[in-house]
């Protein structure tokens, strides 16, 4: 465990070095969130009764999304991992006394966390001082906030576990780039990255909720805004745990199988 922590620490500090990137990211996300809210406002003015959630909840959802974008971003894949698999350098990694799946999992979480830590506070503060209904509102209740925190951690781990599966496809295809683009658009859409899942047509929602993607950013944000509460919230968290276990186990199995193949082929 120690080695993962120190590995995590190195990655984390390396991530902090990118000052200009952090400021640029904050500016970008602020603009992005603002534009999204303006877009939804146009629809809201059209017919507020067709709106599945109150406008201020939606604003909160969008600001949370922007603030924690780095945690849940669908397009972040570690090119180092892809390269080392495609070029066969992975054989060297096998020499280290460390589990590859765990190491890459740690690395992925560290990079995402270091980016998110830098960016979330300024965005949250900005968003909190914006006038209602455009700004961020307080969580529904203290209980909801605690559930939100738990659900955030779970959702974060679910997306990393899922992205490990995408990384693993590089073992089996010569075109990881295509898979990457494909996976990005699927995750982004079904996790509620483009429009929140409550805005999807009612008939399709049960299907979406059953997919692992809904257990990423969707669950914590909806808990925070109070859209999911009580037993519903607990059920969603249960689903998150389930998906995390499934994705983690499948990932480990695939890595074990793939690495065995690499060794047999001689890298």
């Amino acid at each position: 465990m120690r080695k993962y922590i120190s590995f995590f620490r190195i990655r984390f500090i390396a991530g902090l070095q990118y000052r200009a990137a952090a400021w640029a990211g904050i500016a970008t996300q602020f603009a992005w969130g603002g534009m999204n809210i303006l877009m939804f406002r146009a629809f809201y003015e059209e017919g507020s009764n067709a709106f599945p959630m109150p406008f201020d909840s939606l604003s909160t959802y969008i600001w949370l999304q922007q603030a924690f974008l780095a945690l849940f971003m669908a397009w972040f894949f570690d090119t180092e991992i892809f390269d080392s698999i495609v070029s066969g350098n992975i054989a060297y990694e096998l020499c280290r006394p460390i589990n590859i799946y765990n190491m890459w999992f740690t690395k992925n979480t560290a990079v995402r966390l270091s980016k998110a830590v830098l960016r979330c506070l300024p965005i949250l503060i900005f968003a909190a001082v914006l006038p209602s209904p455009y700004g961020m509102s307080l969580p529904h209740s203290i209980g909801a906030f605690l559930l939100f925190l738990l659900s955030m951690i779970l959702g974060f781990l679910v997306i990393v576990a899922f992205s490990m599966l995408v990384h693993a496809t590089a073992f089996f295809t010569i075109s990881p780039k295509g898979i990457r683009v494909l996976a990005t658009s699927v995750i982004e859409f079904f996790s509620g990255g483009l429009i929140p899942i409550p805005f999807f047509p009612d008939w399709i929602q049960p299907v979406i909720y059953a997919l692992p993607f809904a257990s990423m950013q969707n669950t914590p944000f909806l808990i925070y805004t109070g859209y999911l509460s009580g037993i519903e919230a607990l059920k969603s968290i249960g689903l998150q745990i389930l998906w995390l276990l499934v994705l983690w186990c499948v990932g480990k199995l695939i890595f074990r199988y793939a690495l065995k193949r690499v060794v047999v082929q001689g890298g």
């Binding site: 500090i13 902090l16 000052r19 952090a22």
Partner: peptide, 8 residues
């Protein structure tokens, strides 16, 4: 770590 934060 501290230096990294400061350099921000």
């Amino acid at each position: 770590f501290g230096e990294a934060v400061k350099s921000l």
